[in-house]
Simulated scan of single mutants.
Amino acid sequence: MTSTVPASLTRTAEGATLQAVFLDMDGTLVDTEGSWWDAEVSVFADLGHRLDEEWREVVVGGPMTRSAGYLIEATGADITLPELTVLLNDRFEQHIGQGVALMPGAARLLAELAAHEVPTALVSASHRRIIERVLDSVGRDHFALTVAGDEVTRTKPHPEPYLAAAAGFGVDPGRCAVIEDTATGVAAAEAAGCRVVAVPSVAPIAPAPGRRIVESLEEVDLAFLRGLVTKRIDSAIRSGSVNKWRKN
């Protein structure tokens, strides 16, 4: 995890509801899910194997070890997991060598969060080397903190990455909004106790209580994100569990 959090960002205004916003990277912030699949297809082609298009939904959004392990088992490729991980990261970096495109609505949302000094973190299952390459393209100043998949003990769908981001800002996970594009990422954020906005990319995400699903980031702004946390607090007050919720 890397952080450039100034003191002003670690102190939210008294009585504020939304304390921080966490964004996933691939497929949420930047249009790279296709590049990952292209990298996987080309690497396995070099190994003499053809990937089934149906496997794409299986490997999307997960940690590298899970995706690579699945593809080794599915194809029977004669390669170790560490060797394949290196090849996939190398090939992906080649695919994004000329830069990456932000998802629709991402630039506007990042600008709005910055204008209102909302602490914002990038939380990804991708390795640090990949995050750094993407940040070179989209700009590091958008994020005061970043969490990489190879810097935590357990990555998504475990809640550790989002709990680490909340701890890095010194905020309550229950007052943080997370934007994710895969079921794996949504599971991690919800397990951490965050409020979640799902923007499905490759695979659909099922509706669930307290989960907001939108078609693109064009539908998401600061008021929308604040509303997620406010509704949670109101619901807790009505149920009589607000004191318990505040302690969690």
Rank of each mutant, 00 (worst) to 15 (best):
I131R: 01
E132F: 00
R133M: 11
R133L: 11
R133Y: 02
L135E: 00
D136P: 00
D136C: 01
V138F: 00
G139T: 00
G139L: 00
R140G: 15
R140Y: 02
D141Q: 06
D141A: 03
H142S: 02
F143W: 02
A144G: 10
A144E: 12
L145Q: 14
L145H: 04
T146C: 13
T146V: 15
T146W: 05
V147R: 01
A148K: 02
A148W: 01
G149W: 01
G149Q: 02
G149M: 02
G149F: 01
D150N: 11
D150V: 09
D150F: 06
D150C: 12
D150A: 03
E151D: 12
E151C: 07
V152A: 07
V152C: 08
V152Q: 03
T153I: 12
T153H: 11
T153L: 09
R154G: 05
T155Q: 03
T155D: 07
T155E: 01
T155Y: 01
K156H: 09
H158Q: 09
H158Y: 06
P159E: 15
P159T: 14
P159R: 13
E160R: 04
E160F: 06
P161I: 13
Y162W: 15
Y162N: 13
L163R: 13
A164Y: 04
A165C: 13
A166V: 06
A166F: 05
A166H: 13
A167I: 04
G168S: 07
G170S: 08
G170P: 08
G170D: 14
V171H: 04
D172C: 10
D172V: 06
G174D: 08
G174Q: 12
R175G: 01
C176H: 05
C176Q: 09
C176G: 06
V178D: 15
I179H: 03
I179Q: 02
E180D: 14
E180C: 15
T182H: 07
T182Y: 05
T182Q: 07
A183V: 06
A183L: 08
A183Q: 10
T184H: 11
T184R: 13
T184G: 03
G185C: 07
G185E: 08
V186T: 07
V186F: 08
A187T: 14
A188G: 15
A189V: 09
E190K: 14
E190V: 14
A192L: 14
G193M: 07
G193T: 10
G193R: 08
G193W: 10
C194K: 04
R195T: 05
V196G: 03
V196H: 05
V196P: 03
V197A: 11
V197N: 11
V197T: 11
